[in-house]
Write a protein that binds this DNA or RNA. Structure first.
Lengths: 194, 194
DNA sequence: TCTGATGTATGATGGTCGTCATATTATACG
DNA sequence: CGTATAATATGACGACCATCATACATCAGA
């Protein structure tokens, strides 16, 4: 029955999703066409609809993929630090020039969430899903304290995503660096030193 | 020399900019065509290039307009509070459901900065200009304290912009409200109570 | 009222987009 | 080696886009 090596199509699909996850974060969803996407995956535009029902269908899938990829990277950075300093290491890696300069491999929130808020329900549902997952993971790193941990995770995530987004938007490298440095300092002091 | 009532063209131009400032924040720059923009201002698409050199030219202008409009609104909210509570009032108005639900009349940072980071230098320069202005205004509201005031303003701005952006992106109204509430609480405690 | 300049509309151009119907290749089995 | 089928490519459709050349309408001054 299986004329092609089993999983050929599945692997191709994953390549498209992976290419899309990077391209969307780099150029925005509206900034990348289906044809360009298929080209990045080494294919032509026509076969796209054998893999996805629509572009939005791919966007939802790419959200999940982008989250997994970037989370793995940030988790790795945190793991290299001793347990007491893991949260500070995460903050340092997130609000870093390296993260700012690599939107294609970074967190999807500063890159795409503004655009995703105007997308189809299906896409927003996928984003919400990975957002919850990210908050839950961040929560586990926060120290026990008086105020609610979920609340602190939500505020910290907002601060970090905003910092990277604004650091990417401004034109002046010195100002951009300062946004990141100020956010690292202030949020580390506020959330990681208790 | 002046055959039309003086300032006719100028007033039309301002109407286009004002309509664009709102439309861009609502639908994204890529989400609104020149034709639709002119329609919103009560004109047809053709005359556009008598007013602007390009769409990007309008985007830069719309950034400035959006900043002025939204700043005036937020400043008004802060002014209604006694001097000691003005910063808390600003934070409360910024990270509010009302602001989240009115992107067209709100701050351009959560709505557009991610997209603007991928735009022409001219546009990013305009954004950087108004960003600096906003930081300077916020700085003046911050209490004197040990750590640098500019740093605190940059971090607070990041946190607020990120909170509104994420609150707009998630699908679940309860989660969205909680992002805002958590950010209000945490950032007010961290920045306004010293 | 006529005129000439000024502001706006009409219409077209070349390009790109998402989507789909159909043709073509590449593979595994008989 | 031939054949049926799975995976991809070709090509086209209608819609929309930014931009521009040109035609029209409007109004101040004579």
């Amino acid at each position: 029955m299986v004329r092609y090596p089993s999983g050929h199509k599945e692997r191709t699909r994953e390549q498209i999703v992976s290419a899309a996850a990077r391209a969307f974060r780099e150029e925005g969803v509206a900034g990348v066409s289906v044809g360009e996407l298929m080209g990045r995956a080494g294919l032509t535009h026509g076969g796209f609809y054998a893999h996805f029902r629509s572009k939005d269908d791919l966007v939802a899938e790419a959200c999940r993929c982008a989250f997994e990829e970037s989370t793995a990277r940030l988790r790795e950075a945190a793991r290299r630090a001793p347990p007491e300093e893991r949260l500070a290491a995460f903050i340092g890696a997130y609000a870093s020039p390296a993260h700012r300069d690599d939107p294609g491999g970074g967190c999807l929130m500063p890159a795409l969430s503004a655009e995703l808020s105007r997308h189809a329900p299906e896409v927003r549902a996928a984003f919400t899903e990975v957002f919850r997952e990210g908050i839950a993971a961040l929560e586990r790193q926060l120290p026990d304290e008086g105020t609610d941990r979920t609340d602190r995770a939500l505020a910290l995530m907002s601060g970090l995503a905003g910092a990277v987004m604004l650091a990417r938007a401004v034109d002046d490298p010195a100002l951009s660096d300062r946004i990141l440095q100020a956010s690292r300092d202030v949020f580390t002091a506020a959330f990681a030193e208790k």
